[in-house]
Amino acid sequence: MSDFQPKIVAFVCTWCTYAGADLAGTSRIKYEPNVKIIRFPCTGRIDYMFLIKAFANGADGVIVSGCHPNDCHYVSGNFHARRRWIVFRELVDFLGMDVNRLCFSWVSAAEGAQWAKIVNSFTEEIRQLGPYKAYMELVKKDKNESVF
């Protein structure tokens, strides 16, 4: 199981976490290559549909990350996002989805090292959990076709 290379996608806001990941780069902090970032203007933009579509298309884990509370570039986008995540996470847990495959975090533009830490620890957690077989059985589609 430890050889397993999980596929992880990260939905992040451009102002904080994307900038934080940039800082990890300029600081040359090394981390696992499994997480690939998709850039949004704000966590408030991140529809829960993107999260379930990530799993439907073969993600083993999903990260959602943005500005710390009170630091949102758009004032309150992250507060709305947080409410959405609280309700969404409770719901999918109730539906039997593995919420350990969802990682929510606040990473600021100054926290390059924190971003690397989250990537490394979450990658390791997903590596321990293995591929998300249950969800892929739900998909039962040709693996190389986008699920939309």
Binding site: K36, I38, P41, M49, F50, A54, N57, S146
Partner: peptide, 18 residues
Amino acid sequence: GCSNRQMTAELTALLLSD
């Protein structure tokens, strides 16, 4: 610039080309 269509296209390609 960040439409549902654009973001899902990016998402699926990112996962399927992995």
